[in-house]
Design a protein around this nucleic acid. Structure first.
Lengths: 337, 337
DNA sequence: TAGTTGGATGGTATCGATAACAAAGGCGTT
DNA sequence: AACGCCTTTGTTATCGATACCATCCAACTA
């Protein structure tokens, strides 16, 4: 029986309730001044009519969307997921919604994505990483909203940033291994040039090794990022063939580190007795696998939370809001001696 | 020097270019009829002015958002991430954007989320699971857009569904184990009542065991979903204490299965010689850990892709679009004999 | 040559909510 | 009683793009 009819609008509710559309509008804002009886009557009528608030109209008129645009390299990465989780947690207090996009570790794709996202008129934009195409950078600079770069310390920040030095964390790992008397240390990472954070970590490895006067030739490029467990295992196989005397390996993430670990297990190599392994990211797997993995905790969720409160401060017009330097933490476990 | 000025609109471009706003609008649609010269001039002027298309205005007037709303239990789950990836892949061909929300495995939260998402006027909504609060169900039924339920076979579908029987997959796993002469089989899952898919899997376990006339008391509730690796390990520890003679364990996911596996390794139990382990979801870890995990591949990415093409068919007004029954596949690996 | 077709462009009204301003009524104060 | 103040509600115009319809002109047909 029911006809195809247009969904009800605030005007319909106003008619039914006998008030003006403006009053209906007020009934849906929590803070606005309206008598309790009127509001109740309006909300009841809305429920009866099956009214659904139209955010598109509200967005246009009020020039507010309550969107925060976020780009991350991949949806399927516990670290970035944690960051988004922390951000979401903080923003939901303000009823803001995250508009999420995936760059697939590709700066061209990031550029497209940023353009797409800005069209939706977000209140702010959060991007992962501090390197972008020239056009993406221009888009962000010209955007009339706060811009926050995360998971990096940008050479030239566009707006604010919440991050850490990716080269620095690997330097720290190298220093730790050297202190533990390792010298034939290898690095398993992604292909250079795609994942900028991965490249930075590789760079940090090279710098630290040179500083210690150690051989920097033990470098395995495991393919385009993200490096999977499987790719980590394959890379470990190649490493062991090319450099059988390697004492320790630093992997670009815990996932590739775990893959590398399993490759050792299949070959009957003992970790850490025969070879040591370090990862990055403090993924759950590193804390539970046998042996557990030495890693670096980048405080992914904290990055999200701090980005969120930084954002809220900026949107509230607070002065003197600064950048946030995250301090990743080395966690020594069983995979290194 | 630069003043705080309002971002340019199509009217500004029209003024600069000497055409009507309507023509400017046409220049931004790929299919519309407009001469090449005019379009080029408009796009150039837009670039010069730093114009950013305003989707909120477009959405309101055209009553189209190119949004597809999607709810998943958690962002940090490779299975759901794959489904979203497959969906995204399919929809991006139509330039549609996914509006993602997380229910945190909570039907109340799902209800709130659905209401939030519908306000954004998506073209369609995809929800994970076939069970919802009464109000959420009503919201979905009344929504003037296609509704697709995934990862389940709903008792009463709201619109269409793309999924499989969660009870069925575990029955299959039990049958396989029984065929391999196991009889003291346990199940490690989440608390009942929160995660409906997890509960369904538990139910499938009970049914299958009864059918085979086997003892159904070996049930470990590992806490509220999602069950982490750590919780899987803890559950395994409890299982071994309560039922030391258990021959095989089915875990609600590969992650908990891996956790259980590590617990066995820590206790010096051999898998599968002393105890066998089965998981669910065909996560990467199951294919690379030592020993590799017997699991069930639910074709997560395929669910996303098929949801996407089903959606496009519906939006194109195709008749006779049917539901999609996914056939999960048992993958026997080293963790069962 | 007149008539027709179709590509390109313009004019106007509109999507639905709400910002900005106005006003009505109740209450207390002097 | 007169005044001001606060609470509650109403009126009007508007956010920016575009659906819809009208118009113009070149090219082509009969």
């Amino acid at each position: 029986m029911s006809q195809i009819r247009k969904p009800p609008t605030m005007a319909d509710i106003a008619r039914v309730t006998g008030v003006s559309p403006m009053t209906v509008s007020r009934a849906f804002k929590t803070d606005s001044l309206i008598s309790k009886e009127t509001r109740d009557a309006i909300l009841k009528a809305a429920e009866d009519l099956g009214y659904v608030f139209d955010a598109t109209a509200s967005n246009l008129r009020s020039q507010k969307t309550d969107f925060v645009a976020v780009t991350i390299p991949s949806i399927n990465n516990a670290n970035f997921a944690d960051t988004v989780g922390g951000l979401s947690e903080t923003l939901s207090a303000r009823n803001m919604q995250i508009l999420l996009g995936y760059t697939n570790y590709d700066m061209q794709e990031e550029e497209r994505l940023i353009e797409q996202l800005l069209r939706r008129k977000p209140e702010a934009i959060v991007v992962t990483g501090g390197k972008h195409t020239a056009r993406a950078r221009k888009l962000l600079e010209n955007a009339p909203i706060p811009v926050i770069e995360t998971w990096d310390v940008p050479a030239e920040p566009i707006g604010h940033f919440v991050g850490f030095s990716n080269a620095g964390v690997v330097r720290e790992m190298v220093d730790h291994l050297v202190r533990s008397d390792y010298s034939r240390i290898a690095f398993i990472g992604g292909d250079v040039g795609r994942d900028t954070r991965g490249s930075d970590r590789r760079q940090g490895f090279l710098e630290a090794m040179r500083q210690h006067g150690l051989d920097t030739s033990r470098l395995i490029a495991a393919g385009p990022p993200p490096i999977s467990m499987r790719e980590g295992a394959n890379a470990m196989a190649r490493l062991l063939e090319q450099f059988p005397d390697t004492e320790a390996v630093i992997c670009v993430s815990d996932l590739s580190a775990f893959g590398a670990l399993t490759e050792c297990q299949r070959r009957g190599l003992r970790v850490p007795e025969d070879i040591s392994i370090g990862g990055f990211g403090d993924y759950e797997i590193g804390s539970i696998c046998v042996p557990t993995l030495t890693t670096i905790d980048a405080h992914a969720r904290d990055i999200g939370r701090k980005t969120g409160s930084l954002l809220l401060d900026i949107l509230d017009g607070k002065q003197n809001v600064g950048d946030v330097l995250i301090e990743p933490q080395l966690i020594v476990r069983e995979s290194t001696r």
